[in-house]
Design a protein around this nucleic acid. Structure first.
Lengths: 220, 220
DNA sequence: GGCGCGGTGACACCACGGTGACAGCCGCTG
DNA sequence: CAGCGGCTGTCACCGTGGTGTCACCGCGCC
């Protein structure tokens, strides 16, 4: 599997590159957008791991080019901006997946593998779980074909749970991802939001509570 | 559509800028090459209308830079030199089109529109959504066969929403695309324009509000 | 039993988006 | 030139639903 890593923070770039090679991938690393485009013109990559904030040619622009060129490469966008809003922006550009920094290396590997497995091009970047679907770009979630009327926070939480794909997500992590800024550490918003989400989903135990660890999307 | 006009003859520059705005484009005007490069570093333009003979940084140089930066902007070169040879020179630098002075304003508009359409040339040149149609080139929108009398801004907003194809478009994004860059960040124009648009469309919820995320054209 | 964690329902706040009125600007026309 | 009308943008105001807090409850565990 061929992977191109585009990341201007050199230390991170090299670390990621080395790690992925250890996972058996053929990895090229470049440090800016212009170089990335050069490589893309010459080589065929399965997955492009793309930092959004790049000097010179911005990551968004690189992404747009890849999509415009109808390349078969999947794009995994990395970004420091983890708010739901910015996430939507990224996917709107045509990225196939999205990973907010800081990320767990294992998760990066898993997502790259998942992307590489995807049959072909413009797969809708939509989460599916049983009869539940969530489209981050369009901000639409459905259950059994019926549209769910979710508020932004509820949507964000559900998105995180689906992205975690069965792994439990702690309240702190949810706070950090969905509520961005420094939040009151004693807040109880998360549990309240989870409760409301459960209510709207109908089946309360679709979201499973893992004691001391958080919540995970359940195998029904 | 965002356009940057680079022309050192101030009267001409202002006239062209004004005219293009009347055509519904978001236009920035600068009078020399250095300013042009500054703007290009910050903003994303669909088309750059570039006079070839500029004081300071020459138009050719600006063009070369744009191409070198692999910007997505298309370059329309304006010049007093109309011989075939020089024309070839211009295109050789990477310009996408070429218009000898003096030119017909209508033709300028037509060429800009053509350039803006080019990257996604395979795309249909007219948007359709349910009983709504919008033709960007001819600036005509209809609903259920009846022509809609839209102002330029309203038209621009609707065009953006249709181009986003169901994805929500934030107020900031609309501001950037439909209005020019010097936009007051606290302005409320967008919501007012949306309101007027909704009024003219008849069905207010054809444009759906997605809280915190923007507006989307919406079935569903 | 007491403690800690998570679920529950109620409540209050306020930020966001909708609304209507108005004013400046500009081009057109007489 | 004055007068007019259409397009834009601003502002003040309102209603509402999204959001966060709190008190309380229920349950399982040491």
């Amino acid at each position: 599997m061929r992977v191109l890593v585009v990341e201007d923070f050199e230390v991170l770039a090299r670390t990621v590159g080395k790690g992925l090679r250890r996972e058996g991938m053929a990895v090229d690393v470049v440090l800016d957008g212009a170089d990335a485009l050069d490589r893309l013109a010459v080589n065929r990559y399965d997955v492009v791991v793309l930092d959004r904030d790049l000097p010179g040619v911005h990551g968004d622009e690189v992404c747009r080019r890849i999509v415009a060129a109808r390349s078969s490469s999947r794009v995994l966008m990395l970004t420091a901006a983890s708010t739901v809003k910015q996430r939507v922006d990224g996917l709107g550009l045509g990225a196939d997946d999205y990973l907010p920094k800081p990320f767990d290396f294992e998760e990066l590997v898993a997502r790259i593998r998942a992307l590489a497995r995807r049959p072909s091009s413009a797969l809708p970047s939509v989460y599916e779980h049983a009869d539940l679907t969530l489209d981050p770009a369009r901000r639409v979630a459905t259950r059994g074909g019926r549209r769910l009327e979710l508020t932004p926070k509820e949507f964000g939480v559900l998105e995180c749970l689906l992205a975690a794909d069965g792994r439990p997500v702690s309240a702190e992590e949810l706070l950090e991802r969905v509520w961005d800024e420094a939040a009151d550490p004693f807040t109880t918003v998360v549990k309240t939001t989870i409760r409301r989400l459960r209510g709207k989903l109908g089946t309360p135990d679709l979201i499973h509570t893992v004691r001391e660890a958080g919540y995970r999307i359940g195998a029904l």
